[in-house]
Design a protein around this nucleic acid. Sequence first.
DNA 1: CTGAAAGCGCTTACAG
DNA 2: CTGAAAGCGCTTACAG
Lengths: 345, 345
Amino acid sequence: MKPVTLKQIAEQLNISVTTVSKALKDYSDVSPKTKALVKELAKTLNYKPNTFAVNLRTKESKTIGLIIPVIVHHFFSNVIRGIISQAEKKGYLVIILQSNESYELEKKQIDLLMSQRVDGILISLANGTANFSHLNEVIAQDKPLVMFDKIAKIVKCSKIIIDDRKAAYMATQHLIDTGCKRIAHFRGALLPQNSIDRFLGYKKALLDNNMPYDPSLVYICECGDMSFEEGKKNAQQLLNDHNDVDGIFINTDLVAIGAMTEFNKQGVKVPEDISIVGFSNWFMSSVISPTLTTVDQPGYEMGRAAFKQLYREMKQLKKNKPVVYKEIVLETALVKRESTKELVK
Amino acid sequence: MKPVTLKQIAEQLNISVTTVSKALKDYSDVSPKTKALVKELAKTLNYKPNTFAVNLRTKESKTIGLIIPVIVHHFFSNVIRGIISQAEKKGYLVIILQSNESYELEKKQIDLLMSQRVDGILISLANGTANFSHLNEVIAQDKPLVMFDKIAKIVKCSKIIIDDRKAAYMATQHLIDTGCKRIAHFRGALLPQNSIDRFLGYKKALLDNNMPYDPSLVYICECGDMSFEEGKKNAQQLLNDHNDVDGIFINTDLVAIGAMTEFNKQGVKVPEDISIVGFSNWFMSSVISPTLTTVDQPGYEMGRAAFKQLYREMKQLKKNKPVVYKEIVLETALVKRESTKELVK
DNA sequence: CTGAAAGCGCTTACAG
DNA sequence: CTGAAAGCGCTTACAG
């Protein structure tokens, strides 16, 4: 059963393809009578415009691309939800690719999306990405591009982020306020901006509270992805290296949970011996024990905001109007739970 | 900067568009010299074929659609990963939609994907789906369709599943083997096949062990989605209704975790007072305490298998060869953890 | 080995 | 109010 075309409708009604096309799109220069006839037949024949042809004519695909480091992470799946739901509202479909934190893959996927001629691209960078020419090329070709969460400051485009530095500061301050005297930090990989900013927030909080900053207390994620195993490994290492640490600010909940699991195994009590603050507020952080104090990061909202901005830019582009890049900073909140102690009065 | 077309290459080289097209596709009837010239220029100009035009000609989009009930669920995000990675290998892109367990949405999304003329569709049904005409229509239009996990037996198409009945039987048998005498079941919604099959597996295990089947011990999920809250609510209800239940087989890990949280709050000890087996082996089940005994369901593998089958069918269709529907059953395994007791010798 | 021509199914500027 | 025509950028059967 072949799909119905405009031509078939036109032939059956003995009118031109032009008129059929215009009737279906409610052009004002078609008689109401013709419109009614056309629409009725289109409906009975279950006519669906051929998107391929429409795309070719309009040079639009009503499809956007999304590149995300890891889909299964709670934060990112929430971002995806936000993007898809907003896109659907505006009649856009979303092609999703996973970069697996690899720069090479990310680059290939950008190429793929450009070949596919998506109308715009949303991206959260891989940890491995240090070169941004693939992104600048997208921009150079006038393809709207919006980065979120894991961004590169140097790339000129819109960005949806949180204030990582401030959030990390809050988190560290909370450890200090609850009596921690020697606070370690499990940071992410070296490159990502958010990992840098969270580190800087941690450092600033220490200094503002007249606590010494000790580089040996900062553990870098070498493997590139922020995993449960990474948390266990770092926790083990920390216990070997130091016996006076009483608080840790950890870059991601999943890593924090890995660390807590290890501490639990080793008989180190959380928060009595060591307090822990995570980052991102994954669902599971609220159900493990002790429940994890963390920074809530609005994934769903971030996804929505990212699509909205992309949509704005796609619309401007279509009208040949100038695009104004925006940097939208979403609010975060510290969620206090059992992995940190009560406030010291 | 407008994209380069075949015409531009042809003009610059003073040859025909036909020859350029054939040269780029390595047709045997183009001289090696011409080929070399064309390819070189194409490369320097960064020529990318216009997918819209290619699609229109070839009637293929090299894109498939995926409809999934909930993205953030660990099992489903793993399925997505499996699908995307396999699709990428074969040069296919994946458009993802979330049905939110709603039949109405699912139907709309099928329509959307058909309008978009994707080459094939992968779907896991919404809990609310009891009418399958939207799916039969897809099949009637010769569009390859593969269902996975949440399937409808009555729809004639390929299916990738696990043996839910067997897995549930295993899970229940484990509760029996570890000494449970009165076993409840939190089943999913009424409609989904897997929720029915898991219930039947539970029931069969009881009967095979000469244990009475008591309908009042089966709690149905009314709200439609299998959530954490659902687990808490059912657990509460169970404590009200019965004081002799010592084991529960729960349809989904997330619900099981909700139940455990509630039990913990009420001072009911797991597994001492009540043993629990979940289903799906979500990551978080291995990090909560007690860790959750559950049935491991191979999400990533299921995604891969689903795409592979779809790919086979798309290839057959292209060659105008008959499509053979397959029902592929993947293996599951019981993962024994702390929420159930040791085997009774 | 090369190329003119038709056509995929639409949209839209233009003529009447 | 209606329609002929051009064109979006490809692919491919066919002629030479």
